[in-house]
Design a protein around this nucleic acid. Sequence first.
DNA 1: GCGCTGTATTACAGCGCTGTAAAGGAGGAG
DNA 2: CTCCTCCTTTACAGCGCTGTAATACAGCGC
Lengths: 332, 332
Amino acid sequence: MRPRLTDVAEAAGVSMKTVSNVVNGAEHVREETRQKVLAAIDRLGYRPNIAARNLAQGRSGVIAFAVPQLDRPYFASLAARMLDEAETFGWIVQFHQTGGRREAELALLNDRHPARLDGIVMSPLGLTPEDVRDRAPGLPLVLLGEKAGVEHHADHVGIDNRDAGRVATEHLLSLGRRQVMALAPGPRMDDERINGYRDALAAAGLPVDEDIVLPTGGLRGQDAERTLGDWLDSGHPAPDAVFTATDWLAMGAVRALVLRGLRIPQDVAVVGFDDIPYDLATLPTLTTVAPDRVAIARLALQALRDQRPGGDPVRLQAPFSLVVRESTAGIS
Amino acid sequence: MRPRLTDVAEAAGVSMKTVSNVVNGAEHVREETRQKVLAAIDRLGYRPNIAARNLAQGRSGVIAFAVPQLDRPYFASLAARMLDEAETFGWIVQFHQTGGRREAELALLNDRHPARLDGIVMSPLGLTPEDVRDRAPGLPLVLLGEKAGVEHHADHVGIDNRDAGRVATEHLLSLGRRQVMALAPGPRMDDERINGYRDALAAAGLPVDEDIVLPTGGLRGQDAERTLGDWLDSGHPAPDAVFTATDWLAMGAVRALVLRGLRIPQDVAVVGFDDIPYDLATLPTLTTVAPDRVAIARLALQALRDQRPGGDPVRLQAPFSLVVRESTAGIS
DNA sequence: GCGCTGTATTACAGCGCTGTAAAGGAGGAG
DNA sequence: CTCCTCCTTTACAGCGCTGTAATACAGCGC
């Protein structure tokens, strides 16, 4: 049998509670006693029983990290960082895949869940702002990502998408490109990344041609490939640069362009968004906006830890950077 | 406060233990009683406290899933399936990233870990067969992947790599290709995928030219790009097909080929291995061997559940399929 | 020395659940 | 009608830990 707290206590000649205090780093333990206890712990190979601790503390030590799909590279890489950071917070991370379905996201939010959770970090897709507002109280929640509106009712961690969109577009303009197309899943005026694109054009004194702000109608590479392909095939002149709201779309756009004989970056420069972690093996490698995932993970967990039942929602911004690769390199 | 078992018992007018029996689906509960209890559970919104259950049962309900890196697409997609399947087994999955470091893998194996685990599913990279053999007893372990030797001392789930390599190569041969190059991380004779490649050539009555079995010296796309690029640049004739041991290598190979003006698949057909989930956005999309990840996850968890302390190691094989995409399509 | 303050340590209940052993009841055989 | 069996339900201890309240002790000023 594994040694228990009592075993250590007996071996060290102190009470169970003192051992507990040492294990948990409490103050008011004499150095001499601490050493005695640590020696006994070491000798017996004691490690605490988490289930018992959780039961006694009324917490589970488990947080949920919920994303639409774990096998989407952006989420996978974010999950990896979340795991690293959670370790430093002493949390076990339980992953959930919601498929972006509102129902699955709601179930988590409202604690309809077998295990007791100490908190949830979620990248929502289907939730409405009202869903978030009306959620079961008492379960700390931090939202990630760009689903608009929800951030008013819960803590939110993200990057400044508008600023990032501006930086990406300015990069294209700095290369001398003037016909900069934008591709985004929806035609929504509220896509902050595209608003940043508009900001950059405006700041450069260029008109924003809404005809070359194309909605792809979906998030997949194929959606962008089809959208841009159709546009080119219907006789429109090719742009000299493309900014896309995600790397997936960028890769689809690259397919559409290359399959029509256009060279990247010589004819068309392309900038993506997200820095999903396979860019180095694609041809060309993608220039992209790289959110600081470590910062996102850390901020989210801090916010989760510091959340108080009645408190106002907090909005935190993580930094980002522009990573220049082949799809815009060496052409200025 | 959340309702407890006693609250439900009181509401239903039965004992706590009877409620427990209903919740756990025990036999010998009269239908009438069961209904009464279920109604009370429903009315109060009762859900069991996992920490308490685990404490009482002496298990944690948590298994570890350890991979080198969670943000590598193959592992991410496997993790996603593992999560799905674990849910049906009633397990919470705790992810670990070992970085492929033997030390980190050993720590997990020998239970040097804060939380108590009910089992480990690991894709090892640094472990030696002896490490596995001499591990701490009593902690169920299932190994995944292709690290040779370790499978003798613990349960193992994988696909038949040799057969898969054969199928992939036969596909290239069936397209009429005869100069089929192979790229693998190491020059090891024990790479089963490459042995399958050799099998296919031999079965077709073709000689195996070990000069075009190239070791890339690494797992990354860049490794394959450099290896194949150097080979081509030193005046060797281009092969008419390339089989690579992983998709990453295939993508690197594609870069090397395309950058030198070769067309895929017209000049060179390419087959990868793993079916990492971004193939649809690359140009060209990759023909590849797709391991049945759902089967791998399910088999691994079944093996974990059924493992008995003294039992002999079990070796299980999951199916795979060949997914034909642009890198070999429409050229026969 | 005496009482006081503050630090160091202890005893003990209880977190919510399940396993065990034993009691209660229904129904059939004798 | 009694005894026995088998099904159903119950009481209760205990899983290993932490919070609370109580106690022991050391050091200080007067």
